[in-house]
Structures are given as structure tokens and as C-alpha cells.
């Protein structure tokens, strides 16, 4: 497991566009949006969060693109299968690495921007945690989408799993509303943590079955 995490993180480290790209796009969208419309600061604060949510969706979409594609194309997946006899650990460590090195920084950027747009500074941690958790959920879902259509350009699969991201968005929306109005945050966040554990345990299982079907 540790070996896999080491391998995945060094591979990701050298793939500059995979981790820097999503972060840049996140920053770009979050800065470009207020510039592109003529709107008062007061109005902006009311719906700036939905921009954050949408760009979160978009960037996690981008970040997971080609997550398994490269390993499938160059035959690394087969080699891993020979060593592990299973993809569970491979998938688990890959998602872990991607969430740590792309998902969490993106959530951090989102939290900083939200704080610049009218969220009280004391809520920074709350926003950051809920964004990170929804990134964990989204990465798991989109990784599944990627694995589905691995040899046909991962976009198709991600699009077919996009509907599944809807509950995550609803949940994140509720979490943010609870932060804004200052009640019920704890319940929502514990629900998200629970879902995070559940999905992180089950999704890799499903993804590894999918990958196995592909190399078959």
C-alpha cells in the first residue's frame, strides 16, 4: 500500500498539467466571474458560493480525467494486476493521492476565495472542510466514470456518472447554507464524513471490478 502511494504520488508529481491545470482553472474561474459581470459586492456575496460549487465540480471533473487511462494504455495496469491480483489497493491509493494533492488544494483555494467574498473569517475551516469532503466524494465518482470508458476517452464515462454527482452538490449546497446561516453545520458535516467513508470504501471495489473487466 505504501509502495503504491509512493509510486502514484511521484507519477503525479511529474505530470504537471494534471495537478497544476485544475488549480489554475479554479483560480481563473473564481477571479474571472466577478470581473465578467457588473454587479455590486452585496449581490455578489449572495451567490458567489454557487460559483465555487460549480467550479469545484468542473475542476474535479478535469483533475480526474485520464486517471486510469494512461496506466491502461501503457500496460501498467496489467503489471499491477500481476503483483496485487486485484485493483483495490491500486485504486484506493490513486484516489488518495489525487484527493491529497489536487482535491484538498482546490478546496483550499475555494475557501480562500469564499473568505474574500464575505464569509466570516471564523468560518474558513468550515468552508474548507466541506469543500474538501465534497471533493473526496466527487473524485471517487469521477474516478468510476473514468474507469468505465477507459479506452474510449474518459470523457464519455465521466459524463455518464455526472448525474451521480448531483447528490454531492445538493449536500454541499446544504452545508454552505448552514454555514451562512450558522445552524445545523455539524449534522451536515457528519453526514458528509459518513458518506465519505462509505464511498471511499465501496467505490474502489466497484472501480477495481470495472478495471478488471477492461483488461480482461
Amino acid at each position: 500500500m505504501f509502495r503504491l502511494i509512493k509510486i502514484e504520488s511521484s507519477k503525479l508529481f511529474y505530470k504537471l498539467k494534471s495537478w497544476l491545470g485544475p488549480m489554475l482553472i479554479m483560480i481563473l474561474v473564481l477571479t474571472a466571474f466577478p470581473l465578467s459581470i457588473d454587479i455590486s459586492q452585496f449581490d455578489l456575496e449572495k451567490f458567489y458560493f454557487s460559483i465555487i460549487v460549480v467550479s469545484l465540480l468542473m475542476t474535479s471533473f478535469l483533475a480526474t480525467e485520464g486517471m486510469f487511462e494512461e496506466d491502461f494504455e501503457d500496460g501498467s495496469l496489467e503489471q499491477e494486476y500481476l503483483v496485487e491480483q486485484d485493483f483495490y489497493k491500486v485504486v484506493l491509493s490513486k484516489i488518495f493521492v489525487y484527493v491529497c494533492f489536487i482535491g484538498v488544494p482546490i478546496a483550499f483555494i475555494g475557501a480562500i476565495f469564499s473568505f474574500a467574498n464575505g464569509v466570516a473569517i471564523g468560518n474558513f475551516i468550515n468552508v474548507f472542510v466541506s469543500l474538501s469532503l465534497s471533493n473526496l466524494l466527487l473524485f471517487n465518482l469521477f474516478a468510476f466514470g473514468n474507469a468505465l470508458s477507459i479506452n474510449k476517452g474518459a470523457m464519455l464515462g465521466v459524463l455518464t456518472t455526472l448525474p451521480l454527482a448531483l447528490p454531492v452538490i445538493i449536500l454541499l449546497g446544504t452545508a454552505i447554507r448552514s454555514i451562512q446561516y450558522g445552524n445545523g453545520f455539524l449534522e451536515i458535516i457528519s453526514l458528509m464524513i459518513g458518506m465519505g467513508f462509505l464511498i471511499s470504501a465501496i467505490m474502489p471495489l466497484i472501480i477495481s471490478t470495472t478495471l478488471k473487466t477492461h483488461i480482461d
Binding site: L156, L159, L164
Partner: peptide
């Protein structure tokens, strides 16, 4: 999406299985 996914593989048994996985998750 299910229809497109099924239509996009040359190995039909493979696409049967992938489609089933997607349907269950959906």
C-alpha cells in the same frame, strides 16, 4: 449514457458487464 456506453466497445461481453455496473450504480 447507458446506451452510448454499451455501443462504444467492440467486445460485447465486456460492454454487457460494464453497462451492468453503471446501471447498478445509477
Amino acid at each position: 449514457g447507458i446506451l452510448t456506453l454499451h455501443g462504444s466497445f467492440s467486445n460485447l461481453e465486456k460492454s454487457d458487464r460494464l453497462m451492468s455496473i453503471l446501471v447498478v450504480i445509477g
